[in-house]
Design a protein around this nucleic acid. Structure first.
Lengths: 140, 140
DNA sequence: CTGTGTGCAAACTCTTTGCATAAGT
DNA sequence: ACTTATGCAAAGAGTTTGCACACAG
């Protein structure tokens, strides 16, 4: 745990964020175990379960701060919830309509081709690809 | 106008929706003039400007009914607003971060390649591609 | 100590809903 | 007539914000 916390404290400092108790706690949950996709509510619940009480407002604030600092990436799925992704590199997502969860699309063979020039006066800032998956109810 | 209304009435009937005054009014705004991308608020405002008073709740209900009936498609951009697209065919979008508007990506050379098999027990229901465009502030 | 972060509750935005009235067939 | 849609206002979900207290440096 000390090592992990040490790394996290360092990560926060590098991002220009004070390593407060809450931020370290949330960061350990987020970055402690592989790539994750969470909503604010989910992370809040996990923090409480892990005996790291944080207020929901702080979770929101922290997720936004982490996102601004480049530690997280926001993923747009649809109106209601905001998902945060601990993998900030270029990659795309599967979205399971059944349970509303996200998964990174494995491998990196996936690519978008044939993109026309962006309109005058603009540049591409990011390309989001969401592959929506449903249950194959109507499959043979 | 008679022709247009006639077509719209027919479209609504075909979709199993009663052609009420409000639905016809909103459908004319939506389908009367090429492909459009609107939010509920925008459409509401346009209806008022066009002297077709409709309540905002009805706009929301109507957009959802149209979407369920397959006349519209919902586009996910990010948490806050829900965009509806009158083009229900397979196509992708430019999103202008500057003003929060959407545009269909012209041409159909754009394609997604190298998609891995979807996980066991699921099938691809749709692929969304959003190309986010920003102002080239840091361009040379 | 000094300034930034946190927690709480209230505020806010977007969207949905309940119920009485109005309109469609 | 009978049924479904509309409008209003209230409720609801998710997220942000203001301000007093607490903590990090």
């Amino acid at each position: 745990m000390f090592d992990a916390d040490g790394r996290i404290v360092e990560m926060l400092r590098d991002a220009g964020l004070r390593p407060t108790r809450q931020r370290v706690a949330l960061a350990s949950l987020l970055f402690g175990d592989g790539d994750r996709h969470v909503t604010a509510e989910e992370l809040h619940e996990q923090a409480l379960n892990a005996r790291m009480p944080v207020s929901l407002a702080t979770v929101y604030n922290t997720l936004n701060q982490f996102t601004n600092a480049g530690l997280l990436r926001e993923v747009a799925i649809d109106g209601s919830k905001t998902y945060f992704d601990t993998n900030t590199s270029n990659h795309y997502h599967f979205f399971f309509e059944r349970d509303g969860t996200l998964m990174d699309i494995p491998g990196d063979q996936l690519d978008v081709i044939g993109l026309p020039e962006p309109p005058e006066g603009t540049q591409v800032s990011r390309i989001d690809v969401i592959v929506r998956l449903s249950d194959p109810s109507k499959a043979a």
